[in-house]
Computed example of a mutant assay.
Amino acid sequence: MKYTEKISNKLNELLEKNYDAEKGYLNSAENVDSTTLKIFFKRRASERSQFAKDLRTEILSYGQIPEDNGSFKGTMHRNWMSLKSLFSSNNEEAILEEAIRGEKASFDEYEEILKEDSFAPSTRKMLEQQKQKIQAAINTLIVEEELS
């Protein structure tokens, strides 16, 4: 496998996860009553949409084809979150817990991919910035969960 193809495959994995996260956040925004949480989730969805655009651009710069949508696993997770929120006695708490879990998984995936040393400096910088924003979202979600 060529270098550019290998890097693009790794970036495509993140791209799919960001599509999933965007859809998950939009789903979460629809399932909470709190205006603060609705705004937070919509902002995170917009942020993940921007992450996806940046990743698509990066993949194209390597001369490869970006993925068009999320993963099957992401669809299943969103369906589970919807079902769980229907039966949960505290919708918002359950949704916050799932959002934290999802963000921690994303953070771990960025950590794992960043162990690769062969990224161009611009690619590494973009991935590091996205990872930092995910950590900030985790911190905010944990505070929200503690307040609820």
Rank of each mutant, 00 (worst) to 15 (best):
G63D: 11
D54R: 03
L55V: 08
L86A: 08
T75R: 11
K42W: 07
N79R: 08
R44I: 14
G74V: 00
S88V: 05
I65D: 12
S85F: 01
L60I: 13
A52E: 00
T75I: 10
A52R: 03
K42I: 09
M81Y: 00
L86T: 08
E58Y: 04
S88A: 12
R78S: 03
N91S: 10
D54E: 15
S49H: 13
L83I: 06
S82G: 10
K73Y: 12
I65A: 10
P66E: 06
S71N: 07
E93Y: 12
M76L: 15
E67I: 06
S46T: 14
N79D: 15
N69L: 13
G63C: 11
K84R: 14
F41W: 07
F51Q: 02
S89L: 08
T57P: 02
I39S: 10
F41Y: 15
G63Q: 08
R48F: 04
G63I: 12
E92F: 01
E47L: 13
I59K: 02
F40R: 02
A45L: 06
Q50D: 15
S49W: 10
I39Y: 10
G70E: 01
E93F: 11
I65K: 15
L60F: 06
F87T: 01
F87I: 05
S61A: 09
H77C: 07
K53I: 07
S89T: 06
W80C: 03
E93G: 09
E47F: 04
F72R: 09
Y62C: 04
F51D: 02
F87M: 03
L55D: 00
D54F: 01
S82A: 11
R48A: 01
E92I: 03
A45M: 07
